[in-house]
Simulated assay, not measured.
Amino acid sequence: MSSLTLLSPAKVNLVLAITGVRADGFHDLVSLVAPVAFGDQVTVTLTNEGGGDQLTCDFPGVPTDSTNLALRAVEAFRRRHPFEASVRVDLDKKIPAGAGLGGGSSNASTVLSSINELLDKPLTINELIEVSSELGSDCPLFLAQKPVIMRGRGDQLESLATAAEEALSGQRLILFKPSFGVETGWAYGRMKANGTWYCPATEAEAMLAEWQAGSDLCKVPLFNNMQQAAFEKFLALPVLLELIRERHDARCIMSGSGSACLVWLEPDMASESIIATIQECLGEAAFWVETSIA
């Protein structure tokens, strides 16, 4: 038996521009995305005791059958590189569902990385990215383990300039999520039905190019045209974000497809009063965490 325990990080989309619908039905995007120091803990164990692959998780509502991306990742790895051992995945879940923080995709990529490590790396990083892209559009970014620019449907990754990557490293954030979630498929469906919310790829590329060429790399141009779909239905989100801007002079946006949002903390900015505002508006049961870009 051999085992490996790894952090399965959440991600934030600092820039997310959905640019249009592809011929294959997926959406094209341009996104500046980064893993954070907060996430789930995944333990992958290879065993010869038999019994088949299995997943354990005591977080309510998380499926532990083959519909879970973590077990689908095991199957995808086997298709690319067959092996005899059974796999047990123990998932200590912290990332909330329906948040747009990439929890399921992160779990899948972490499982792929863990199996590859335990089997003495039979697959290259490019092969792992190919396998992960079969599982979901967000999966490849978690294999990069650093901030990247995503393109296509999320399967095309580009490293940042060294100075930009260093500027983002350690940047403090508050992540929060109300009691309700946003289903990703619904959000993309609303984008497609509206048809006017898309951002031209040229505008998104110019935004990122100007930022990387600028003198203040800590001023990331927070942008998310996908939040318009969620804001149309869940009015509490834009109201709270505007309150945070007015009361605390803090920059904030929805992350990914939502409903989680992020607050960008400047170096001298205390988090306690902002967290108090979040709890005042969403209640004590709302999810929040102070973290940083990995």
Rank of each mutant, 00 (worst) to 15 (best):
A167S: 15
F180P: 07
E183N: 13
G152S: 06
R80K: 14
L123P: 11
L135H: 11
S159C: 00
L101P: 04
D92H: 08
R78S: 13
A97E: 01
V182T: 11
S106T: 09
D90G: 00
V74L: 10
V89G: 09
N107T: 08
E130S: 15
G136V: 10
E165A: 14
G100T: 02
V182L: 11
G98V: 11
I129F: 01
S179Y: 06
A108Q: 04
A97Y: 03
A108M: 07
S132P: 03
L119V: 01
H81R: 13
G103V: 08
I115H: 10
G100Q: 03
E134R: 15
P82L: 12
P140W: 03
L123Y: 04
P82C: 12
R80Y: 05
R88M: 10
R79A: 14
L143A: 07
D138R: 00
G170N: 13
R78M: 13
T124N: 00
S109T: 10
V87G: 11
N107D: 15
D120K: 09
Q171E: 08
D90S: 14
Q156S: 02
G152D: 04
F83Q: 03
G185H: 09
E134G: 15
I125Y: 02
G181T: 08
D120R: 10
Q145L: 00
D138P: 10
A164Y: 01
R88E: 13
A73W: 04
S105G: 14
Q171L: 14
P96D: 06
Q171K: 15
L141F: 01
W186P: 06
K192L: 07
R88T: 15
R151C: 02
R190L: 14
A144V: 02
H81Y: 13
S86D: 14
S132K: 03
S106Q: 08
G185C: 05
Q156C: 05
A164D: 01
R79L: 15
K146D: 06
P178T: 06
D155H: 07
E183A: 15
L173E: 05
A193K: 13
S169A: 15
I95Q: 05
I174E: 00
T110M: 04
A99D: 00
D90N: 13
D90H: 09
G152L: 00
N107M: 04
A167G: 10
R88L: 13
P96Y: 05
G100K: 00
Q156M: 05
L119W: 07
L118R: 05
Q145F: 01
P178I: 05
P96R: 11
G185P: 06
G104S: 12
S169Q: 14
I115L: 15
E127Q: 14
Y188N: 05
A73Q: 09
L112N: 07
G102T: 08
L91T: 12
G152Q: 02
G154P: 06
R172K: 14
K121Q: 12
P96M: 09
V182W: 00
F77V: 13
D92E: 13
S137R: 02
C139I: 06
I125R: 09
Q145K: 15
L119F: 08
L160Y: 05
S113Q: 12
P122K: 06
L112G: 08
S132Y: 01
V148A: 00
G152H: 04
A85Q: 15
Q156T: 02
T162E: 10
D120Q: 14
Y188D: 06
V182N: 00
V87L: 12
I115Q: 05
V111L: 11
L141T: 02
K121I: 02
A163G: 07
P140K: 00
L118P: 13
D138G: 09
K121F: 04
Y188K: 10
F142G: 05
